[in-house]
Write a protein that binds this DNA or RNA. Sequence first.
DNA 1: CTGCATCCCGCTCGATACTG
DNA 2: CAGTATCGAGCGGGATGCAG
Lengths: 128, 128
Amino acid sequence: MENDLFGICPFVTTQKILTGKWTLLIMHCLSERTLRFNELQRTLPSLTSTTLTKQLRMLEDHGLIIRTVYNQIPPRVEYSLSDLGKNFKPVLDELEIWGNQYIEFLKNKNQISDQTNDDTNKNEMTSF
Amino acid sequence: MENDLFGICPFVTTQKILTGKWTLLIMHCLSERTLRFNELQRTLPSLTSTTLTKQLRMLEDHGLIIRTVYNQIPPRVEYSLSDLGKNFKPVLDELEIWGNQYIEFLKNKNQISDQTNDDTNKNEMTSF
DNA sequence: CTGCATCCCGCTCGATACTG
DNA sequence: CAGTATCGAGCGGGATGCAG
């Protein structure tokens, strides 16, 4: 296999699962409650159905979420966490705590750099 | 901005930080002790210096690790976690727990689908 | 409403070769 | 020992358009 440590090292394995720009956010949303496709879409701004579908399929293939289809008109599809997905909750909690810490860190950093560097120049080279 | 929620949503922000195929593993290694460049390289199999350097630079730029250079011949560079990086430890711990759960899940899945195939490669590795 | 098919762009990974 | 320079392949994200 291309990824020698997948299925062996817990960190490499998890990292592989978490590839996908929106996986954490999706997992967080579904950890609160079951959601329909367009509920997810409304919750996650700037995320097209194409991308959302792909990410959901990936998580489903990996066994983290469950896709339930109701045969109705109009269609109704619900996404919820599997047991494996529910066990992921502690990770999400710690991730959220640390993420907020990091955001605070960023704010301080920007305050410092904004004092010295007020002119974020964007001059396009007009000629020469 | 290309990433509207970076610096706002803790999950999106963290996900962005964690891009990089080896970030979690590197963070785990450094969470145990300070390491030199080639120690990391020896610890992490199949990882060229090019890639390792890039990932380390990324983590350094994001403020998670600290790079200390000793002016010596031969050169000596040590990598350690910053305070921000040390605060990441709880995430790593939960990640490791869940990752091992997931590995167990994979084994069961493979047992079902690989009833005819007996894989001889079943070494237990806690990490790397 | 919940997708799939297609195409394109950018970016990351990694191989290889070279350096102080 | 600890990198840098360069280059290429591959893959994921997203825009667009269509479908049941």
